[in-house]
């Protein structure tokens, strides 16, 4: 999930709600979409800004680990596919910043919060991409986990967010398939390629499981977000679904999931599996992952180095509109 640990505001019982709040909740319960101009509780608005903003940040920071291999892609076709994929992620960022802007926060404000560390992005992008097989593992597992979360979010209660998710989901399945396709090629390749593929799975398995956020019993903000249909499933539900989908895919590749306790549980109709190391997750969220400094540093540098460019465009636009005004004036 691209939005982890999103702090939710509010959480009132029906008795504590104002008539307005009750009417709002009833609309959500009837699966009506909430649109930007309509009344909404302040907590709903703030929670959405956090969640959509974090999601948008994840898309743009998410360009970096894969961008890391564009110049080293092993064939021209792979290079083109990876470029198209990374371009899609930037596009997703754009849709999501636009959706967030409908809630009264500007893209610049959100970026400022990212750069200062006030807002987070998904923990997954703080892991390094060390070999070409990581391009396979990221598409397969990371985009796979994102799809797991984003498909239900197409039905989320906030109209602009839901519509952004629908556009994004159309592209995500291509991302996952291109990743899996890389894995298939590597696994059918030389022993060295197959070893790279196994190593990539070993390194990305638990970080992918962490993408869904901590276990439900430790997720303090889930209930309100679920009542508002900002969050559609619990973290554990989605993680279970992801494991159940992914294990057969790993088997098909002839790869071993790095979990000795992974076992099919007939009774629950799903796999039993080991929890990731949550202390690692919290360390990464706190800024101590292997690539936190590089990733955020790269974004801040891009922003700061680009200031003259953005200022130049603004200044030109101001001059152009001033000239147009003067020309109109002269014509009158």
């Amino acid at each position: 999930m691209y939005a982890q640990l999103v702090k939710s505001e509010g959480s009132k019982t029906r008795e504590e709600m104002t008539p307005e709040e009750i009417a709002f909740q009833d609309r959500i319960d009837r699966n009506e979409k909430i649109e930007p101009k309509e009344w909404m509780p302040e907590g709903y608005r703030k929670t959405l800004i956090r969640q959509i903003g974090q999601h948008a940040h994840s898309e743009i920071v998410g360009q970096l680990p894969e961008g890391n291999w564009i110049t080293r892609a092993p064939t021209l076709e792979r290079k083109a596919i990876l470029l198209a994929k990374v371009q899609d992620e930037a596009g997703h960022g754009l849709y999501l910043y636009c959706a967030a802007e409908t809630l009264g926060v500007s893209r610049d404000e959100l970026l400022e919060a990212l750069h200062s560390g006030k807002m987070k992005y998904s923990s997954i992008f703080n892991y390094p991409t060390l070999t070409w097989a990581d391009m396979g593992a990221v598409g397969w597992l990371v985009d796979g986990a994102a799809i797991m979360n984003q498909v239900p979010l197409q039905r989320t209660s906030y109209g602009p967010y839901s519509r952004a998710m629908i556009r994004i989901c159309k592209e995500e399945s291509f991302h996952q398939r291109q990743g899996y396709d890389i894995m298939m090629k590597m696994c059918a390749g030389t022993p060295e390629q197959k070893a790279m593929a196994q190593d990539a799975l070993n390194r990305f398995w638990y970080p992918a499981l962490m993408m869904f956020g901590p276990s439900d019993k430790d997720s303090v903000h889930s209930a309100q977000s679920m009542a508002w249909k900002i969050k559609m499933n619990t973290n554990d539900e989605l993680r279970q679904k992801f494991v159940d989908q992914t294990v057969p895919q790993a088997e098909y590749l002839g790869l071993t999931v790095p979990d000795p306790d992974l076992k099919w549980n007939e009774e629950k109709g799903g796999y039993d599996f080991s929890e990731p190391d949550w202390s690692e997750f919290f360390a990464v969220i706190a800024g101590n992952g292997p690539c936190n400094a590089e990733r955020l540093g790269a974004r801040v540098k891009a922003w700061e180095d680009g200031a003259w460019f953005r200022d130049g465009l603004m200044a030109h636009a101001a001059k152009a509109s001033e000239r147009a005004r003067a020309a109109r004036h002269a014509a009158e």
Binding site: I60, Q63, T71, K79, Q87, A90, L94, A302, G306, F309
Partner: peptide
């Protein structure tokens, strides 16, 4: 393509990736 993710604005990231 070296600019991917490092350009001065999101629109530029998209445009440059497209150009590459």
């Amino acid at each position: 393509s070296e600019w991917c993710g490092h350009s001065p604005a999101l629109e530029e990231d998209i445009a440059l990736a497209n150009q590459a």
